[in-house]
Structure formats: structure tokens, C-alpha cells
Simulated scan of single mutants.
Amino acid sequence: MARLIAHARPFPYPSPPASQQTTPPPGGMESTSASDKEGPPPAKRRKISKERSTEYLDLRGSEVPPNQDPELDQLLRVLHERRKIVVIAGAGISVSAGIPDFRSAGGLFRSLKDEHKLKGSGKDLFDASVYKDDTSTSSFHDMVSSMSRMTKEAAPTPFHHMLATIANEDRLLRLYSQNVDGIDTALEPLKTSVPLRKDEGGKWPKTVQLHGSLDKMVCSKCHELSDLNADLFSGPVPPACPNCEEFNSIRVNHEGKRSHGIGRLRPRMVLYNEGNPDDAAIGSVTTEDLRKRPDAVIVAGTTLKVPGVKRIVREMCKTVRNRRGGVAIWINTDLPPVAKELEDCFDIIVQGPCDEVARRAAMRKWDAPREQDECSQVTEDEMKNASLPPMWKHCPRSCI
């Protein structure tokens, strides 16, 4: 469930500006412009950069084409070895858990349109204007209640578990999730904080929820946060805030003061055409991660229709590919969207299900029991001679 919510306004998450500093002349010396010298200005030095190509890996079938073995090997190397991985994920990583995506033929936008007999798209139920009349509010509440129950019954996918394993090994720099299903943050290594903030040690959580989630509800007046109760969202009237009701009762009945009103509860997820309460924090996390220069970025299960997310992808890919050995990877059943800002973003385009990538990586689940000397039971010579994928033969983390 990602792409659920987005921003129709310009991208709200700031990224660090390009450096404009110039090297000053040595002390005591004045700089001399080209116009002060006789003759034509010196020719500008051209920066020669190594051209990078984009390779393709097709995982839609049972067998990988033989000519694509190097790409598969490189993909597995990244997943098992990189130390500062950034993942930007969308609805595609949750589809196998029974959570529908939004824009496909069988996605939520189409099914909600038919279910609620909407004149427009089901996308209209994710717009802030749903509160403008009783009919749209009632439909929105029905959808929230249904989706909340659906997400609570969903189990993490192999791809979710793979991300949790990478995080548990302290190799995941950040997961930027567009999903509101909460499947990722329910896993301990991928937990987050709501609202988004640093912990007592001054660190940001592993997962940044770009569009909020269905785990929490918030009061429109006092901003009190609580776990979302799907049973409260029924009919055209948003549920009243218990915190406001208690405060108002004390104020009116015991203090004899006039009422300040009672707020209404709503899911803490971001709808179209409204601001994100975590905008500033998301911008700070993004800036910090870019400064740390990740060694790999993986964009998985998203069609990149949201401008803000598209910019995060572009900035991360640019930073990763500008460092030596950095690798940017796209994983989806569809190819990346054709857009000027996404040109030359990826080193490897993997076309296939996200779970197939996790299956081939074959990582131990993050919470699986493990014997202390388990890895030492296989000698180096045995590993070299074993009939295993090339990447596994040199990866001490595979624990085969």
C-alpha cells in the first residue's frame, strides 16, 4: 500500500545544494582575472568522467538468461556486502502479502471506483477533499476501516524479511517507504518513530514513512496520537477525540469556562493536496543520508508517480553513482518510467517480482536462531569448490 498518498505540490523534502565554494588564492596573493592578462584566456580543462552504462536482469522466468549471470552476481554482491544501503520502496513489495497496489488494472484506484460508484477515480478517496461532504467522508471511512483490517492480517513478505536482515546486520542506512501498511515497521530492525524524530542517541529510525501509515490516528485539534481503531471509522462523521472530550468536560463542568471545542480523529497518513507533518524531519534525514554517501541505492516496487519521491530517488542515485563502486538498482515488474529527471539513474534494471530477488539472495531471516560456530563448519576450500552462485563463494554473511 504505497503511492497511497502523495503531494500535488512541489517536492517538500529539501536536499543539500551543490557546493558553490571556490578555492581562494594563496595568502598574500591577489587573484588575477583573465581579462587582466594579455592574449586569449586559457582553455578550460575538461573533466573526463568514466561513462556508466545500464545493464538489465530479467527475473520474470524460472531461469536467468546465461548472458545475464554477471548482473545477477553483481546484484547478489550488493545485497550481501554493501555497508551503507538506501532502499526506496513502494507498494510492489507488499503485493504478495495480499495488499493491493494502486495504479494497476486490479489496483485500489480501480476497485474503489467500482465499489463506491465514484464518478472519478478511486484516487479521489485519497484526496484531502474527502471531508467536504458526508458521502465522500463515509466512503473514506469505509475504505480506511477495510484497509486497516487488511494490513493487520498481512504477514511480511520475503522481501520485507530480507530488508530486516540487512538492517539487523547494520548495513541498511535507511528505508524510505511509501507504504502505509506498516508491514515493514512491524519488524523490529525496521521500526520507526511517529512523529519522525531522532532517538535518545541522536539517530534517526531505520525506516522513514514518506506518507504516514494506518497504524496511528491523530486529533485535528490537540494532535494527540493513538493507535488506529478501525471500528471508530464508520459513517459520515469523523470520531470525536477522547482527549479533547475529557479536557473540555473539565473546563466546562468543573472550571465554569466556555468550551474550546472537540477535535476529530483521522488516520495519520498524508492525503493528496495536504501537507506532511513530517516534512522538515524527512528533509533532515535525506540531507544527512546524502552526506554519508551511500554505497548502494535500491528502488523497489514503485512506479515513481510522486514528485517528492522521484526527487529523492534522483538525488540518491546521483550521489551513489558519483562515488567509486557505488551501484544504483531498480527492481520492479515494470521498467522505470520514461522521464528526463530519471535518465542515467540506474546501473542495473531488474525486471521481476521483489520476492524473487529475496529468494535468490537466500538470506537468513533476521530473527532465525543461529549456532555460534555455524559459519566455521565449512572450510574455505570447500566453499571454493562448492557448486554455489559465484557471489556466495566469497560472502561470509551467507551462512549457507
Results as ranks from 00 to 15, higher is better:
M1G: 13
R3Q: 08
A8Q: 11
P12Y: 04
Y13N: 07
S15R: 13
S15G: 08
A18E: 14
Q21G: 06
P24V: 00
P26D: 13
G27A: 15
G28R: 02
M29E: 13
M29A: 05
E30D: 11
E30K: 15
T32H: 13
S33E: 10
S33L: 11
S35K: 06
S35H: 07
G39Q: 09
P40I: 00
K44I: 09
K47Y: 10
K47P: 02
I48K: 13
S49N: 11
S49P: 00
E51M: 13
G61Y: 09
S62Y: 02
P65M: 02
N67Q: 15
N67L: 08
E71P: 01
V78F: 09
H80D: 09
H80P: 00
R82Q: 09
R83E: 15
K84W: 03
K84Q: 00
V87Q: 04
G90L: 03
S96W: 00
G98R: 01
I99W: 08
R103V: 00
S104A: 06
L108K: 04
F109P: 01
R110H: 12
L112Q: 12
D114I: 03
L118M: 09
L118H: 07
S121K: 01
L125R: 12
S129T: 14
S129K: 14
V130A: 00
Y131P: 00
T135F: 11
M143A: 14
V144Y: 01
R149Y: 01
T151I: 14
P158C: 06
F159D: 05
H160R: 12
M162G: 07
A167H: 04
N168A: 14
D170R: 15
L172E: 04
R174Q: 09
Q178M: 05
Q178G: 05
V180R: 04
V180K: 05
V180E: 02
D184F: 04
E188F: 03
P189I: 02
T192Y: 05
V194A: 01
L196C: 12
K198V: 01
W204H: 09
T207W: 03
Q209W: 00
G212C: 09
L214I: 01
D215S: 14
S220P: 02
H223Y: 13
D227H: 12
L228M: 12
N229L: 11
F233D: 07
P236R: 03
P236I: 04
P238I: 06
P239K: 10
C244F: 06
C244A: 04
E245S: 15
E246A: 14
N248R: 15
I250K: 15
V252N: 08
E255S: 11
G263D: 09
P267M: 07
P277C: 11
D278G: 06
A281I: 06
A281M: 08
A281K: 11
V285E: 01
T287A: 15
D289L: 01
L290K: 12
D295A: 02
A296K: 03
A296S: 09
V299W: 04
L304Y: 04
K305R: 06
V313G: 02
R314W: 03
M316V: 05
R321K: 11
N322A: 15
G325I: 02
G326E: 03
G326D: 08
A328W: 03
W330N: 03
T333R: 14
D334L: 05
D334K: 10
P337L: 08
K340A: 14
D344K: 13
F346G: 10
P353G: 03
E356F: 05
V357Q: 04
M363D: 04
K365L: 14
D367Y: 10
R370N: 04
S387Q: 12
M391D: 05
W392E: 07
K393P: 09
K393S: 10
